[in-house]
Amino acid sequence: MSRHTFTGLRGATSVAIGWDRPLETFFVQVLRPDPEEVGEEETVVWRGTDLRELSTAAEAIAIARPWALLPADLAATLETDRLKTLGLSDGEYQAEMKRRLFPD
Rank of each mutant, 00 (worst) to 15 (best):
I17R: 04
A16G: 09
T43F: 03
E92M: 11
R32I: 03
T49C: 09
E42R: 14
T85V: 02
Y93T: 08
T77F: 00
A60F: 01
R82H: 03
V45Y: 10
L88D: 15
T49D: 14
R65M: 02
A62G: 11
V15T: 02
L23G: 09
D34M: 02
T13C: 08
L74K: 01
A12D: 04
R82A: 11
L51T: 00
E41H: 15
E36R: 14
D90F: 09
E79D: 14
I17H: 05
E41V: 07
R21T: 09
P35M: 00
E79K: 09
W46N: 11
P66Y: 04
L51K: 03
D90R: 13
A58N: 03
R47K: 12
E59V: 02
V30S: 05
G18P: 12
Y93Q: 06
T77N: 01
R52A: 15
A64K: 05
S14A: 15
A60V: 00
Y93L: 12
I61P: 01
F27L: 09
D81W: 07
V28A: 00
T25R: 14
R82M: 06
E40H: 14
W19M: 05
T43P: 04
E37I: 15
S55Q: 12
L51D: 07
E41P: 05
V30I: 04
E92D: 14
V38I: 11
R21L: 05
Q29M: 08
E79L: 09
G11H: 10
L54S: 09
V28M: 01
A68P: 04
E79Q: 14
E40F: 14
P71D: 13
T85Q: 15
E92W: 11
W67Q: 02
G48Y: 05
D73S: 13
L69M: 06
G39D: 09
L86A: 12
G18V: 07
G91E: 09
R32G: 13
E42G: 10
K84V: 10
P22A: 10
W67D: 03
L78Y: 00
I17Q: 04
A16E: 12
V45Q: 07
S14T: 13
A57Y: 00
D81R: 10
R10P: 03
T85N: 14
L70M: 01
T85K: 08
P66C: 06
E40D: 13
R47H: 06
D90P: 05
R32V: 03
L70D: 01
W46M: 07
A72F: 05
S14G: 10
V15L: 00
G87C: 08
R21I: 00
A64D: 04
L51V: 01
E92R: 14
P71Y: 11
A62H: 05
S89Q: 15
G87W: 11
G11M: 08
P33S: 11
F27Y: 15
I63G: 02
R32N: 06
R21F: 12
A72M: 03
L31F: 05
L69F: 06
I63Q: 04
F27C: 08
E40W: 15
R21P: 12
Q29T: 13
G18I: 06
D34C: 06
A95F: 07
